[in-house]
């Protein structure tokens, strides 16, 4: 029983983890992309469609990444090169994604899906309890953890990450030193889009292998909240994602157990938890402000 719950927690947490990591990189570069939900849902529908048409889960996942990148490039072009308002553009991206995915996905409603194969790691997966939980997951769970390590390493140990953080901290100075602020940000936005797309693909290929309209159900917004929750540190995103994953799963089990609480209230629990955590985090201003990228959400127009 406990093992089963833990397994579902991992699958519930993974899309949040992947999407939040991508958005973390975007925000570290100083761009606020509120379109995570839109990019995720596009990843979900395109990933499902591609897997269904080609018969390959891997191709489906790649198509999901590509869909996220396409959406992000649209956002990046508008926000960076035309200096449009980031909040408004991000919101429009979400609305666009929700609408477009509904249209693309119409043909796939009710079509049986393709589940990503489980990737058993030899030997380790045979360990009782630990084995099934940690080493018999689908490939994307491992990808998610690899991404955490990769993002941490690149952000804090490489020159590329240093430049990214510098651009997010003070774009004027980064420009004065000769770095291309817009290019760095554009690449970060694309990375964030790829992650959001992959997270959406995970929803329709692994979490619930089918296409349902609006199936991401606000997870993009939770991912956005997680970035703040983690105060822009990748390792804390893991904690946050699993916490919210756990709350989501517990509500399912609570419903299954027939606890006398209306199901609508239970399904709103993860979102209530998000609000609560944000309130608690914001109470400690010092903690949030120290790591907040100082240029977050500010448009940059080179004065040349």
């Amino acid at each position: 029983m406990f093992e089963a719950i833990l397994l579902t927690v991992i699958t519930a947490a993974t899309p949040l983890l992947i999407a939040a990591l991508g958005e973390l990189v975007v925000e570290r570069s100083g761009v606020l992309n509120l379109g995570v939900e839109g990019m995720m849902i596009m990843g979900a529908v395109v990933g499902f469609a591609a897997a269904n048409l080609t018969g390959s889960g891997t191709l489906g996942a790649l198509a999901a990444v590509l869909a996220g990148v396409c959406m992000a490039s649209l956002f990046g072009f508008l926000v960076l090169y035309l200096a449009t308002n980031q909040v408004a553009t991000g919101l429009s991206l979400t609305i666009l994604g929700l609408g477009l995915s509904g249209m693309i996905g119409e043909a796939f409603i009710g079509v049986p899906g393709l589940k990503l194969p489980r990737l058993d790691i030899p030997l380790l997966s045979d360990i009782p309890f630990i084995g099934p939980v940690f080493f018999q997951q689908d490939a994307l769970v491992y990808v998610a953890f690899a991404l955490v390590a990769l993002v941490s390493y690149v952000l804090f140990r490489t020159r590329m990450g240093l430049i990214l953080r510098a651009v997010g901290d003070n774009h004027g100075s980064a420009h004065a030193l000769g770095y291309s602020v817009l290019r760095v940000r554009f690449l970060a936005v694309l990375f964030g889009g790829g992650c959001a797309g992959l997270a959406g693909g995970y929803m329709s290929l692994a979490y619930t292998p089918q296409w349902v309209e609006n199936m991401t159900a606000g997870r993009g917004w939770i991912a956005l909240a997680l970035v703040v929750f983690s105060s822009w540190l990748p390792l804390r995103v893991v904690g946050g994602a699993y916490l919210f994953g756990a709350v989501t799963v517990l509500t399912f089990h609570a419903q299954a157990q027939g606890i006398g609480i209306p199901s609508q209230f239970l399904s709103s629990l993860p979102y209530l938890a998000t609000i609560l955590v944000l309130v608690v985090i914001s109470a400690n201003r010092r903690l949030t402000l120290v790591n907040t990228p100082a240029c977050l959400g500010k448009p940059f127009v080179p004065d040349r």
């Binding site: 020159r159 240093l162 430049i163 953080r165 510098a166 901290d169 003070n170 004027g172 100075s173 980064a174 004065a176 030193l177 770095y179 120290v290 790591n291 990228p293 100082a294």
Partner: peptide, 17 residues
């Protein structure tokens, strides 16, 4: 007006240049 990055350390600031 200083072109330094406040959130970064001295050595990171210098490495960037």
């Amino acid at each position: 007006h200083f072109s330094l990055f406040e959130a970064l350390t001295v050595v990171e600031n210098i490495a960037l240049a």
